[in-house]
């Protein structure tokens, strides 16, 4: 009986939609679950690598979640971490080879951080917390939702860092076009330096938690 009702549950039922909207908002992987910060901050000096990175994570997490979810009943508990790592590593090699073939410049900018998607805690975290215990379709949605939440933060940080640090957006020179340099504006070099990524994340967390007081812990 319960099996039948589950089958009739539509693909985008309220419960399934929640998997995506929660991961973007109040269960965001970066600002709330504090996962996957390692690679998130390092690629946000410019908008383009940040977008490429988000798409790569979307691919690895979406497919990986489905694969793990299909395998979930055959993976022995004791060696599950190694099985998960092998699945992730195989997907990441695919991403890396595709980037090297079609976007070599961006792949050079991302350097080791493509490889580091393997140890990106978001992916291991979602495998452990969700797809080891759920069916393929919800796992896929969960993967997509979490990587969108991850990508959203990346894009916000990268947007501000590129805009104020280099005065450009995706390489297009904004500040020169609207003539800010003529009235004496100077690019803020501090924004391109690594520490500003951390401070920007801190500020995003601050803003999000002021709007959602229930997220405040400690």
């Amino acid at each position: 009986m319960s099996e039948q009702t589950q089958e009739r549950e539509s693909l985008f039922s309220a419960k399934n939609r929640k998997l995506i909207s929660n991961a973007i908002g109040k269960d965001n992987p970066i600002t709330v679950q504090v996962l996957g910060i390692c690679s998130a901050l390092a690629v946000t000096a410019k908008l383009e690598p940040a977008i490429v990175m988000s798409i790569s994570v979307l691919f690895v997490l979406g497919i990986g979640n489905v694969v793990i979810s299909l395998l979930r009943n055959t993976i022995p508990q004791r060696i599950r971490i190694i099985v998960q790592l092998v699945v992730i590593a195989a997907l990441v090699i695919l991403v890396d080879q595709v980037l090297k073939a079609f976007a070599y410049e961006v792949s050079k900018q991302l350097s080791v951080f493509v490889g580091l998607i393997i140890t990106n805690c978001i992916i291991m975290g979602r495998f452990e917390a969700f797809s080891m215990a759920n069916k393929p379709w919800p796992s896929f949605l969960d993967g997509v939702g979490n990587s969108i939440g991850y990508g959203l933060i990346l894009v916000i940080i990268a947007f501000f860092r590129e805009l104020f640090g280099s005065g450009t957006i995706l390489g297009w020179n904004v500040f020169e076009t609207i003539g800010l340099y003529d009235i004496g504006y100077v690019n803020n070099g501090l924004m391109i330096l690594p520490p500003m990524a951390l401070i920007a994340t801190g500020i995003i967390i601050w803003v999000q938690r002021s709007r959602n007081p229930e997220l405040i812990k400690d």
């Binding site: 951390l198 801190g202 500020i203 601050w206 938690r209 002021s210 405040i216 400690d218």
Partner: peptide, 11 residues
């Protein structure tokens, strides 16, 4: 309040 915990750690 909203900065307590991880927020201030990042900064």
């Amino acid at each position: 309040g909203p900065l307590k915990g991880i927020g201030i750690t990042f900064i």
